[in-house]
Design a protein around this nucleic acid. Structure first.
Lengths: 202, 202
DNA sequence: GGCTTACGATACGAGACCGTCTCGTATTGG
DNA sequence: CCAATACGAGACGGTCTCGTATCGTAAGCC
């Protein structure tokens, strides 16, 4: 998954076990899923859950922050390329991607914990923000801009606000009432409603 | 502010100091503002910050969870009564109320921490959810229902989805990019855009 | 086989916090 | 004055985690 170290390929002696790498990250994810907070995680607990010595963790990461960053990175999947068919379909695809991520259960409980716990360690959050969120947001903005040029979206709209109008409802629902699952077709309904508006008789 | 005990008015001996009540809750809020996570708060730390003995805290609350609940309650303000002028104005009023709460700085940093940290202690979250969020949601739903009856809102809309469409953007923005403040007029812009839709030429 | 490094396990001292308890003092009612 | 309770401060034994170090063993390279 994630190789904490890529430089200086030591050849002497026994190589580090990739299995341990994976076991550690898996254990951290498992604990987070079970409701542990980022602040409540301990290296000691993670090592125990992973069936691994503490030293094996410290050999790979200098501390909890660095480990957490790799844990987050392990969740990343490439976001979908806009097909370009129509702006409406691209927006649906992006929201549907979010929905599936939220449903993944792994992320559902996790994103909540992460997003806010992160703010405590400002550096961690900045790293996550720049590496992950910024990319997604840029992709979304590109789609919106295209829609404005093609006439599918009113020309006077603030792109920043638009982005929140589309993604906000999905995010809020995922973060606030997790268990009320994100139902099939939610992405389409959000996109179409925001596009067409809530008032009657257009 | 919040009286942890209201029954059994002990008359014997020295009465409990209301100043201590307030100091403890204030201290907890101060620590949360400074970025501490709910999980990271300690009774010991709160007592220290409040300039109060630990026993004084334990005399009032049995543990951290009960204390946290009162800390949250101390943030509550009555949500605005719908004026009934128009559904559009009522929606703006509700969102504007959310915006001001988010700006309060006290809540901004805090709500983030709370909303997700809470999920760890499921009971705490349920209590907060039932006591606070449910009431606001019911008020919002009533406004939406009224709008549907008065014809300001299309009849085929799912109220649950509508609620998320209006509140989601505000919530998401407050939770994700705190520092980018919630600008003046955001409530109006969200409401009007969702009502009228994003597509051009209605 | 010999060298080197990683492995799981565990011991270690340091330190934070827990919840209870005990100080000596302060503040009420009777 | 006296009994009762609250106060701030902090001692106490206990648990947990920290980050480091040291076991004996395992797995690669030469």
């Amino acid at each position: 998954m994630t190789a904490p170290e890529s430089s200086a390929p030591r050849l002497r002696g026994r190589p580090r076990s990739p299995a341990a790498d994976a076991a550690i990250i898996e254990a951290a994810l498992r604990l987070l899923e079970e409701g542990a907070s980022v602040g409540g995680l301990s290296i000691e607990g993670i090592a125990r859950e992973a069936g691994v010595g503490k030293a094996t963790v410290y050999r790979r990461w200098p501390g909890k922050d660095a480990l957490m960053l790799d844990v987050l990175r392990s969740l990343e999947e490439p976001s979908p390329e806009p097909t370009g068919a129509s702006v409406r379909d691209d927006l649906v695809a992006i929201l549907e991607f979010m929905r599936r991520r939220g449903l993944a259960k792994r992320n559902s409980a996790l994103l909540r914990s992460v997003i806010t716990q992160m703010h405590a360690h400002k550096e961690l959050w900045r790293a996550y923000d720049e590496n992950v969120i910024a990319a997604r947001r840029a992709s979304l903005r590109a789609v919106l801009r295209r829609g404005r040029e093609s006439g599918e979206i009113r020309a006077d709209m603030d792109l920043e606000l638009l982005a929140d109008l589309f993604t906000g409802p999905m995010l809020a629902r995922a973060m606030l009432h997790e268990w009320k699952q994100l139902p099939e077709g939610l992405a389409e309904r959000i996109v179409d409603t925001v596009l067409e508006g809530v008032s009657p008789r257009r």
